[in-house]
Amino acid sequence: MTEGIDNNAKAAPAAAAKAAVVTGASTGIGEATVRALRTEGWTVFAVARRADRLEALAAETGAVALPADVTDDADVARLLDEVTRAGGIDTLVNIAGGARGADKVAEAKTGDWEWMYQVNVLGSMKLIRAFLPMLRACGEGTVLNLTSTAGYAAYEGGGGYNAAKFAQHALTGALRLEEAEHNVRVIEVAPGMVYTEEFALNRLGDQDAAAKVYAGVEKPLSAEDVADVVRYAVSVPHHVNLDEIVIRPVAQASNFKVIRKA
């Protein structure tokens, strides 16, 4: 039970159909997912730490801006309360996450590893734990976790991100087993190489280093490509569960084979 939250009082009303919380909504795939769902007429509660970017997105799309840190228990409790008072949701989309550093394990920075675990794993867990009573009560709830192909195959320099995404992948699998009896479907979308304005830059801390990640790759995925898959996965009839979706650009045959043109 989440600290400070009365989970027995969080049933979603019938009006919550086609309503979603989307985390990580201030940039990249999260922002694109808010746009994609709003285009389809969903009520969307856009969640991220950067209030200014959320407000701009809300003004443009009609989403509801709810600034919050998904790793903070008090913020999660407040978020649950605000969403409940606004009518509730039937879908939770956990996109908040990220990578820091590309060090080998021998040179691992404890702070980077702790941050990645907090954001990718504990952040997802805290949102799921808070909203599950609501998703169960609505009768046809959905949880979608955005993981990564880094959670399927390890690579040199990826130990911390691999560890976090492997853990998030395992969390998602356990949740699917636990929640089937409550008619909550659990979806995992695992992208490979996606070009966004901030992911590689935040990871490597340098614009030139970030640019090299995508150098020569003719068509990496875009945030909109992934958001369209997310939109489809949560919009199909509820009895259809797209358990695990791996999405890569054609130029990336695996984590270890990427076609780069001169």
Rank of each mutant, 00 (worst) to 15 (best):
N202Q: 08
H239Q: 10
D75P: 02
N183F: 10
K257L: 12
R231M: 12
V230L: 04
K165M: 03
P220D: 12
A153L: 04
T142K: 11
K109S: 11
A56L: 10
A14R: 15
K257D: 15
A58I: 08
A48E: 12
T110D: 07
M134E: 10
G158H: 08
P249H: 07
Q168W: 01
S124A: 13
E218P: 01
R185K: 07
A96E: 12
Y117E: 04
Q252T: 11
V83S: 08
G101N: 04
A68K: 07
H238K: 07
P133V: 10
G158F: 08
S124E: 02
F131G: 05
E82Q: 13
E55I: 03
G98H: 00
N120M: 10
V47R: 00
V21K: 13
L242M: 14
A106K: 09
L171S: 12
D243N: 15
V21I: 08
V246I: 15
V105Y: 02
A36V: 09
G41A: 06
M193K: 10
V121K: 10
G205R: 09
A253V: 10
L242V: 01
R248H: 05
G88R: 01
H239R: 15
D75N: 14
I187E: 02
N145I: 05
A174L: 11
G30W: 03
E3P: 01
R53L: 14
I247D: 10
G101W: 00
N8V: 09
Q168A: 08
S26Q: 00
A164H: 00
R185M: 09
M193F: 06
V240Y: 13
A15G: 12
N8A: 14
N162G: 01
A65E: 11
A233S: 06
